[in-house]
């Protein structure tokens, strides 16, 4: 057997305790292999627990451990960084805790906070900077304007008051038994202020507009979405207000307009 083949076989044994031992391996080999298998599982469950500490506390330790082990079996890590071992874990939580959808929402928030924590450093644009950047914009420039949000900015739709749940859960102690359902679906926005990841709830229209902008939609098209949802007068007010909030919160890194460049 080549080294490549034997490493592939060894990895299969680390990942799956039912995988057959190679020919010629003894009980002593099996005992040594069991240590590697245990190290693998323990360190990765611990890595997930470290990122999802509030989720672990909310669902209780044993339920979290089972979910983490399930995730490692269905999504064995591929990346060199442990930070990526939890990729897709909120989806696993959604699948495993179907009757408690707030679990996946809380998990998403913890993952987004971790990503924002180590996102690239960037200086946010302030109101004066924004005014300078757009000073020569024509109407077409405004319509075609692209907003670049700070690295690490993320948002997701939620149906529960996840900020309240976040504050109520003690990673090392007591946790509430349930989360409050929001009156209407909203979006949860995560970004980084300086070195500190932060979050807040935003209403559905702002969330959908921001999701579109994060996906590369122009400001004009995002405003058109607002008009469809709110009507023209309210959409104009909402567009101005949300742009002002994003600048105030330091969410925007830069603006550009393909029309201005062309």
């Amino acid at each position: 057997m080549t080294l490549a083949a034997s490493q592939k076989d060894f990895m299969a044994q680390v990942l799956d305790e039912d995988h057959a031992l190679p020919d010629g391996w003894s009980a002593r080999h099996a005992a040594g292999l069991a240590i590697y298998r245990n190290n693998y599982r323990t360190s990765l469950v611990e890595a997930l627990r470290s990122t999802y500490e509030r989720t672990a506390s909310y669902v209780c330790e044993e339920a979290f451990r089972q979910a983490a082990v399930h995730h490692l079996i269905t999504h064995p890590p591929k990346s060199w960084t442990l930070d990526r071992a939890g990729d897709g874990f909120p989806d696993t939580l959604r699948e495993l805790f179907k009757s408690d959808p707030e679990v996946a929402e809380l998990g998403w928030l913890e993952a987004a906070m971790q990503r924002a924590f180590v996102a690239a450093d960037a200086a946010p644009l302030d109101a004066a900077g924004f005014a300078g950047a757009t000073a020569l914009f024509t109407e077409d420039d405004w319509s075609a304007m692209q907003l670049a949000f700070l690295p690490g900015t993320a948002l997701a739709p939620v149906e529960h008051d996840i900020p309240a749940l976040w504050r109520a859960v003690d990673p090392d102690g007591e946790s509430p038994s349930q989360a409050d359902r929001l009156d209407a679906p909203m979006h949860l926005l995560v970004w980084r202020e300086g070195l500190k990841p932060v979050f807040r709830l935003i209403d559905r229209s702002e969330g959908e507009a921001m999701a579109a902008l994060l996906g590369g939609t122009s400001y004009g098209d995002a405003c058109a979405m607002l008009v469809d949802r709110l009507g023209e007068e309210a959409a104009i007010a909402q567009a101005g207000a949300m742009l002002g909030r994003w600048l105030h919160d330091g969410l925007i890194e830069s603006v550009s307009s393909p029309a201005a460049r062309g």
Partner: peptide
């Protein structure tokens, strides 16, 4: 690691 998986352990 193999091409498919990473054990995050020193094998």
């Amino acid at each position: 690691r193999t091409s498919a998986h990473n054990s995050h352990d020193l094998l």
